[in-house]
Design a protein around this nucleic acid. Structure first.
Lengths: 209, 209
DNA sequence: GTCTATAGAGTGATAGAC
DNA sequence: GTCTATCACTCTATAGAC
């Protein structure tokens, strides 16, 4: 592992533990066992470190999502959600300190915003597709499923913060996934209930840190 | 207005604009047009300022909620939600920097956690009551309404962060309120739909900053 | 690539005059 | 209560030796 990589990993660890702002360049250098001067050689700023982490996270996200078929089915939506939940656990700090990042790094914020909107659109597409395939009831009123898509997104976006605020120590990506489906469930048709990926008897994913 | 009060108001303004950590004691003193020495006379720390703000916010919240009848009806839930949305707009920073506060002020976090749990319990009570009064369908499966109550809470908790992340400048407390009710709507009985406080034709509350 | 050493910019805290 | 002045500390950034 190159020093550059070591720095990135150490930074992610520290950010995940403490959040971004309390972590100093000294802390990172100390964790990697190199001098601050050396750290500065690799990354002039904390900013460059964060941008690098964001890029790495993005690549990883794209990579994972590309492994899931884009056909908008419940099954694929479930896989997508699991992928996103895994990423968000690995790069927790990004989801916990989102606002700090938005305020301090407008370029990252802009990129992130695009991903958010395309994510919401994808979720909406799944809902529309499910109506078409007879798995979901037709939209009961204009804008209902648009809002539903946004709400589902926010469940995935905020589940870690939700746990943090409520003082829950054990992360449960599964709970987030269940919550997501619990929003869809009331809108299913009878046919939809049969194809539904949520099986309340066995919980197939537990993540913990 | 006493100096102490001026300090508090200035601090809330600055925190709402920039978040907590970037604001220095100097910034606050400058905004109030007093010296740092004087500021220090009134509040030794940023910590003391934040605790004071939290207490003020809490009193205001209690005050507003006490004006709403505790009978767990849709109507009262709607009023409660509006009260909470107003408070969260006024003390935005608390809802945007919740995690910073939790990390830095464990005592505040503990108090806040209690309020969160009691809020969720109250929401759950409304759901249960609505089943009893025939406005909502019986819980389709164990834990469904418990999770629904938590999800509703998170809509109210995260609506400002949601807007911030998505780059929405105009605050719309009404959108948050609508989202909240959209989660309940699919579970209504026919009777419930008649008593439902959500009227899609007129949007009665718009907040903006 | 890696180190040591230090400059320079804040920030919080406090002593002491008015 | 309010001010000025200053100290001590922390963090970033950089120069220069190895």
């Amino acid at each position: 592992m190159t020093t550059r990589e070591k720095i990135i990993f150490a930074a992610v660890d520290l950010f995940n533990e403490q959040g971004i702002s309390p972590v100093t360049l000294r802390d990172i250098a100390e964790k990697v066992n190199i001098s601050i001067g050396n750290l500065a050689y690799h990354f002039k700023n904390k900013d460059f470190i964060i941008e690098e982490i964001f890029n790495i996270m993005e690549n990883e996200r794209q990579q994972r999502l590309s492994e899931v078929q884009m056909i908008p089915s419940f099954e694929n939506a479930n896989k997508q959600a699991l992928a996103i939940l895994k990423i968000s656990l690995k790069y927790r700090f990004f989801f916990l300190d989102t606002l700090d990042i938005i305020r301090a790094y407008p370029e990252i914020a802009k990129l992130h915003r695009k991903q958010v909107e395309s994510h919401i659109e994808y979720l909406k597409a799944i809902l529309d597709y499910s109506v078409g395939s007879g798995n979901m009831e037709p939209e009961p009123y204009e804008g209902c499923y648009e809002r539903l898509a946004r709400t589902i997104w926010s469940v995935l976006q905020f589940w870690l913060m939700n746990e943090a605020i409520r003082g829950i120590k054990k992360h449960s990506a599964n709970e987030a996934r269940m919550t997501m489906w619990s929003l869809v469930e009331p809108h299913l048709t009878e046919k939809g209930r049969k194809n539904f990926p949520l099986n309340r008897q066995n919980s197939d994913t537990h993540a913990s840190a």
